[in-house]
């Protein structure tokens, strides 16, 4: 996996760089009504390590998110997982539009 610590900077222009505050407890994933494949923590972890390619490869997953806010509300680190996913949607939309 390619590590890219600058990706966090890129994310700042979307919904902030709170992904780094996540300590990977998985509360968001276990509470998410989607109940799907470590979502959203998988995406958040990819942000942490800067695996942008992974995010783009699996971008469609992001739109499963209902933006119901349960993860954001319960996150022990106040890392705003829901907002991170929204930011990733924005990032993907804008990346695709640009290309």
């Amino acid at each position: 996996m390619i590590l890219d610590t600058d990706f966090a900077d890129e994310m700042k222009q979307y919904s902030g760089d709170t992904a780094l505050e996540c300590f990977n407890c998985g509360t968001c994933a276990a509470l998410c009504p989607l109940f799907h494949d470590n979502f959203p923590r998988r995406m958040i972890r990819y942000v942490q390590v800067g695996a942008k390619e992974r995010i783009l490869e699996n971008a469609n997953e992001l739109w499963r998110c209902l933006h119901c806010g349960l993860c954001t509300h319960t996150c022990p680190r106040e890392a705003d997982p829901g907002e991170i996913i929204l930011g990733l949607k924005q990032m993907v939309v804008e990346t695709r539009r640009r290309s």
């Binding site: 590590l3 780094l20 505050e21 996540c22 300590f23 990977n24 942490q48 390590v49 680190r77």
Partner: peptide, 9 residues
């Protein structure tokens, strides 16, 4: 974490 130390376990 805020300072972007990347943790691995």
């Amino acid at each position: 974490a805020e300072n972007r130390v990347v943790f691995m376990r």
